[in-house]
Design a protein around this nucleic acid. Structure first.
Lengths: 254, 254
DNA sequence: CTAGGAGGCGAACTTAGTTCGTGTCAAGCT
DNA sequence: AGCTTGACACGAACTAAGTTCGCCTCCTAG
């Protein structure tokens, strides 16, 4: 231990023997794409409710405030998610003879994207209508309906309905699946239990629900989704079609 | 100031001259109904996003923790809201000759309830299927469809679709109206601006969106809602109906 | 009168979105 | 080379919201 004050001060300020420690390696820069990737990973594995700025930052190995150099706020992150999800939807070349199948295919893709990221359709439901990736999908769907001879306004309104429906459907399915993962909650019911519940309802108040408990809880996979798309597309008929053609269409789709 | 320690201690413990102040009047007891009323008031005036336990407690003139003697958690509050909203829906006596009008009427009521409490359909979308008030409405709707001769499973699935749709529709409308209230946000667009946006999109990528911008943004009031309900109920046909009857039904509803 | 339960309530805890201030780095200019 | 400026990264701190815990008061039953 040096006894001279000058030497002691020098020792207090001494550089480490090997010179300054090498600074930690510069991390990969944070970008909007990396943020979006990380957010999608979180939603895919933990559900939309687990999506927090802190969670995304943790995946990126940084702190939450670092993200604000690249995104405006959490809502902006939602917008990015929806955009990325829509960008992965494959749009077919419109075929007038198969427009119904094409509509079902595209909306099936959208549904599956939403289900791949459980709960994210909530963000889709809140999205503003000017996201380019979303508009691309809308353009593709519109082209299919127009190719099928549907009048523009009916086409537009039908797409609106279908898009709202698919979002709500995916949201419901995500919640049901999430509830299945946590059966510790006593009010979470499987189908058998739900039937039991329905049939145990007061007969005076719920005669039909009791009688048809099985049908009310029926359906596997995407039966309900397919049924609804069938209802909606079945009602859509080509502009200027003859009455006879309508009959044929109605029979084939119902 | 007394100098004797005994007197100083007596002064520290002295009762106020007038005896203990009269305790504040006992407040009206907090009940589940009062909580639900307060919550509905908040949602009706400020939207669902403003619904916090603290906000409800403030309306009731108490603190947030006081509510937990009566509700389990915030999700329980959502359940109460949905139940109250459904309890106000008036169910008609099923009429086989007017089942479509009746379905439209009841779903119109539901829609209006959701719109009266902006954003609350989000809670409805997350609700579990065993709320008695919700089941009551479902029972009534099921009875209407069955009276109309619709097969039980189709009836059940159609109700599922319609309920999802009306929730999503109300949610979208609530968001659009909310955005109209805050035009300071630059990305909020009225119809004219939206048309302008659509027509300004790249022609190579968005030919149909540009051409049909007017139709894509058309519709006033609940045109879109009515259109969708028409599509869905138009496709629903009575069980065992003859082919000829189908033709007449299809024409009248499309 | 005493004990116990119900209800009310403040303090405190945890968590999440966001801002602010500071430091570092890279590019451009003199 | 040195200085300036803008972009980026990040920690501390702030605000806000859901909830729990501990304490107090009141009421009812024994």
């Amino acid at each position: 231990m040096p006894s001279d004050p000058r030497q002691r001060r020098a020792a207090r300020h001494a550089q480490p023997a090997g010179g300054p420690a090498a600074p930690p390696p510069r991390k990969e820069p944070i970008t909007v794409d990396r943020i979006t990737d990380a957010a999608l990973q979180v939603v895919a594995t933990e559900g939309y409710d687990a999506l927090t700025i802190r969670r995304v930052a943790a995946v990126l190995g940084t702190g939450p405030s670092s993200l604000y150099a690249h995104i405006v706020n959490k809502e902006d992150l939602d917008d990015l998610l929806v955009g990325r999800i829509c960008s992965e939807v494959v749009l077919p070349e419109p075929d007038p003879a198969a427009w119904r199948e094409q509509i079902r295919d595209v909306y099936g893709q959208i549904r599956d994207q939403y289900l791949k990221y459980p709960g994210v359709s909530r963000a889709a439901l809140a999205a503003v209508p000017t996201n380019l990736a979303t508009l691309r999908v809308r353009e593709g769907l519109l082209a299919i309906l127009l190719a099928g001879g549907i009048a523009p306004q009916r086409a537009a309104w039908a797409l609106d309905a279908l898009s709202l429906y698919v979002s709500a459907y995916a949201l419901e399915q995500s919640l049901v699946r999430q509830r299945r993962k946590h059966p510790d909650q006593e009010w979470v019911l499987g189908r058998e239990e739900l039937i039991g519940r329905f049939t145990a309802l007061p007969a005076a108040t719920f005669p039909q629900t009791r009688r048809h408990a099985a049908e009310l809880t029926s359906g596997t996979g995407h039966d309900r989704f397919d049924f609804t798309l069938g209802l909606i597309t079945g009602s859509l008929v080509a502009d200027g079609r003859t009455s006879q053609s309508r009959t044929a269409d109605s029979r084939s789709s119902t």
